[in-house]
Design a protein around this nucleic acid. Structure first.
Lengths: 140, 140
DNA sequence: GTTACTGCAAAGCCTTTGCAGCTGA
DNA sequence: TCAGCTGCAAAGGCTTTGCAGTAAC
């Protein structure tokens, strides 16, 4: 994995401790945190960092394609440092979000949409909702 | 098409002029309006109706499965009276939203996700983004 | 030395809530 | 009648903005 500092520099973003902390945290988690979650989890190491800085930083990352903003129909956005094209799945019980990488069936559906609509397709977001294996066990 | 009044009654919703107006408007449009758009377009016929009533009404409709709430990553939600399972496509230029009905490739991707994740799949939302035929012409 | 970022507070915006009065069934 | 809806105003919650001070380069 490339060094976080190098990636920020490559995008002409000034490397500050706050930015590094947010970026590294996002790259090392798979929980798809919200701005508030990020803020809280960095409170201990960066007690003076403000929520506004988290938002501004996340915005800068999204603008530069370093992070992807997820809109799962909750009250707030979630953020994902995995920028490869992939889908997301949310458990309707525990609200956790999982990445679904490399679905074979994405290409055919994109092609069908393109043929059907005449749109010049730029991107897509697939959100799946269901009950995760863990919560299925608990329910029994 | 079933009468709007009958549909509301069937869901034990009191039939008020405001609700009828909102429901009919949604059933006769394909622009996927926001709460504010609905409010504005009904101002002439229902000048005393408040935005809060629009929100409360839309919430009641969504709870009863009469209307579906769309989350396209804009500042506000959009609403769609077409409750059949279908996908949505938004033009990134003119921001218009189109329904995409009966995609053949939805079933295979759902099956792939189910097998891959072990989730009990409940629902899904597919959002496509691109440039519509109209805007493609304009750009040339 | 500049440019751009941080942090605080305040504001913005969409949406929800509380409540008194009204109305549909 | 009376449960439930409307409309007004106020509040809520997430996110953005303005600005002075500060830090990165």
């Amino acid at each position: 994995m490339l060094e976080s500092t190098a990636i920020l520099k490559a995008h002409h973003l000034k490397v500050t401790p706050q930015r590094l902390a947010i970026f590294k945290m996002l790259r090392h988690t798979n929980v798809h945190p919200s701005a508030e979650t990020i803020y809280n989890s960095l409170q201990e190491d960066h007690p003076t960092m403000s929520l506004a800085t988290v938002y501004k930083t996340l915005d800068a990352f999204v603008q530069n394609g370093l992070v992807q903003q997820l809109n799962l129909g909750e009250d707030s956005y979630r953020y994902d440092a995995d920028t490869s094209p992939h889908s997301h799945m949310q458990c309707t019980v525990c609200k956790s979000v999982e990445d679904i990488e490399q679905l074979q069936q994405v290409a055919p559906i994109k092609q069908e949409v393109q043929e059907l609509t005449g749109y010049q397709l730029l991107s897509e977001q697939f959100y799946f909702y269901g009950i995760c294996p863990e919560c299925q066990k608990t329910a029994q």
